[in-house]
Simulated assay, not measured.
Amino acid sequence: MLSRESRMRRGEEFQAAIKRGKRAGRPTLVVHLVISGDETPRVGFVVSKAVGGAVIRNKVKRRLRHLMRERLERLPRGSLLVVRANPPAASARSEQLAAELDLALDRILRRRESSMDGQR
């Protein structure tokens, strides 16, 4: 489980990450990242009804929360990260979700670093 200070709960935070942040997509999930401030990185999850019924959605969300807890230290301070599950996440194994989450995070963090290099 993610700690309380690492969870995103306010709608404004979700909107900021999705509207102003960088985006990286995979078949089972999409991640949105924006850096604002210098506090502990926070993560939020979006699992819509398109993924499945309530039991399936909660199972996908629990898996993603568990996977993200292990990867939280990779995020820079002040990060707001939204992980949005796509319908194929319902039938994906945990290993596949982990691999796709790693690929999406690698891509979005590389993009952030390259955009920071261009500003220097």
Rank of each mutant, 00 (worst) to 15 (best):
Met1Asn: 03
Leu2Phe: 12
Leu2Lys: 06
Ser3Glu: 14
Arg7Tyr: 05
Met8Gln: 10
Arg9Cys: 10
Arg10His: 11
Arg10Gln: 09
Gly11Arg: 15
Glu12Phe: 00
Ala16Gln: 14
Ala17Val: 02
Ile18Lys: 07
Lys19His: 13
Lys19Tyr: 07
Arg20Val: 01
Gly21Cys: 04
Gly21Asn: 03
Gly21His: 03
Gly21Val: 06
Arg23Tyr: 05
Gly25Met: 02
Gly25His: 01
Gly25Ala: 15
Arg26Gly: 03
Thr28Ile: 02
Leu29Cys: 07
Val30Cys: 01
His32Lys: 05
His32Phe: 15
Leu33Asn: 05
Val34Gln: 05
Ser36Arg: 14
Ser36His: 08
Gly37Arg: 13
Gly37Lys: 11
Asp38Thr: 14
Asp38His: 12
Thr40Trp: 06
Arg42Gly: 11
Arg42Thr: 14
Arg42Glu: 12
Arg42Cys: 09
Val43Gly: 00
Val43His: 07
Gly44Asp: 11
Phe45Met: 09
Phe45Tyr: 10
Val46Ile: 15
Val47Thr: 11
Ser48Met: 09
Lys49Ser: 14
Gly52Thr: 08
Ala54Met: 08
Ala54Trp: 07
Arg57Gly: 00
Asn58His: 15
Lys59Tyr: 10
Lys59Trp: 10
Val60Pro: 01
Val60Asp: 01
Val60Gly: 02
Lys61Leu: 02
Lys61Ser: 06
Lys61Asn: 04
Arg62Ser: 10
Arg62Pro: 07
Arg62His: 12
Arg63Ile: 05
Arg63Lys: 12
Arg63Asp: 05
Leu64Cys: 05
Leu64Pro: 04
Arg65Tyr: 09
Arg65Asp: 06
His66Arg: 05
His66Ala: 15
Leu67Pro: 02
Arg69Phe: 07
Glu70Gly: 08
Glu70Trp: 03
Arg71Glu: 15
Arg71His: 11
Leu72Gly: 04
Leu72Pro: 06
Leu72Lys: 12
Glu73Met: 09
Glu73Phe: 07
Glu73Thr: 08
Arg74Cys: 07
Leu75Ser: 08
Pro76Arg: 06
Arg77Ile: 00
Leu80Ile: 01
Leu81Asn: 00
Leu81Lys: 01
Val82Arg: 10
Val82Glu: 12
Val83His: 06
Arg84Ser: 13
Ala85Ile: 06
Ala85Thr: 09
Asn86Glu: 13
Pro88Val: 01
Ala89Asp: 07
Ala90Tyr: 10
Arg93His: 15
Arg93Phe: 09
Arg93Asn: 08
Ser94Ala: 13
Leu97Asp: 01
Leu97Phe: 13
Leu97His: 04
Ala98Tyr: 03
Ala98Gln: 09
Ala99Val: 14
Glu100Asn: 08
Asp102Ser: 11
Asp102Phe: 00
Ala104Ile: 03
Leu105Trp: 01
Asp106Glu: 14
Asp106Asn: 09
Arg107Ile: 00
Arg110His: 13
Arg111His: 05
Arg111Leu: 09
Arg112Asp: 04
Ser114Phe: 11
Ser114Ile: 12
Ser115His: 11
Met116Gln: 15
Gly118Asn: 10
Gly118Cys: 05
Gln119Thr: 13
Gln119Asp: 13
Gln119Phe: 09
Arg120Met: 08
